[in-house]
Design a protein around this nucleic acid. Structure first.
Lengths: 139, 139
DNA sequence: TTAGTCTTTGCAACTTTGTTGCAAAAGGTT
DNA sequence: AACCTTTTGCAACAAAGTTGCAAAGACTAA
């Protein structure tokens, strides 16, 4: 686990620091998307708010995490898959937000279907967020 | 125009006040989605920030406007079509964000395609936001 | 291992964004 | 016009996000 974290940071040409290790670990363990607020709460040591902001920013730039837009007016961050690289994020999967447990997960297997845009319009990135009830909560 | 505005407010059982007329007019004229900030800037008279917040909130509740989630960490508001009613918003169209001019528009004609979710998952609402270059900016 | 350099962190101070309670003003009704 | 109800603006907060700068930490090479 520790190896994996260092590997990811090194690959992105980032120096390995306490906060980066810690925050990256949180994402790997979480499995679902996290808000800035969640990250701050889950850090074992207390890092400065500013540090969390800057770390998330760097992770974004390096393509380690990506943002998920939500209707709830909160930005969520989630780990990118391996094929994401600096500058270009391959975000063609669906995000699912459970309205019961609140967990937001990336459904990496389900791809976003093609859509026809009006003439002249050019799509660069497509985001699809599905709100509903997840399998765990549907009982 | 003035008639149209009063009609919409009356239909939603809202009293017709300066700020509501003014803000609703801004949305009708804008044609595209607006951030809270934009609304504040465009009001001809200066209304209190709080009034703008509350007005947008009321418009949301009455189904006059709806929100659009964006990756940019900003919530946008846009006029709903006629078939949206209090409590239930028919948001099955695509939103397009132009990365050049920044305009966000509702593509009412393009419906969100069906997708197959894993077993146990239940979709209640689907949001689809396309980022790219719009017809005006593609030159 | 240590010395030196460059990067990252934490602090302080600040701006922006969003919320709440309450008195004054404006809207709707008779 | 007089009444009652709703809406507005103000003040005072709380939360979220940003910036500059000195101190601490990470990497490099000898």
């Amino acid at each position: 686990m520790e190896d994996q974290i260092i590997k990811i940071l090194r690959k992105s040409q980032l120096s390995v620091t306490e906060s980066r290790r810690n925050i990256l670990e949180i994402f790997i363990q979480a499995g679902s998307a996290l808000a800035h607020h969640d990250v701050e709460e889950k850090t074992s040591e207390r890092f400065d708010r500013v540090t969390v902001y800057r770390t998330l920013q760097v992770f974004m730039e390096k393509g380690i995490i990506h943002t998920i837009p939500t209707t709830e007016n909160a930005v969520l961050y989630a780990l990118c898959k391996d094929d994401c690289e600096e500058g270009h994020h391959h975000d063609n999967h669906i995000h699912f937000v459970c309205e019961d447990c609140g967990a937001t997960t990336c459904m990496d297997d389900i791809h976003i279907p093609e859509i026809k845009l009006p003439l002249g319009y050019n799509a660069l990135q497509i985001n699809m967020v599905v709100n509903g009830i997840c399998a765990k909560c549907k009982k």
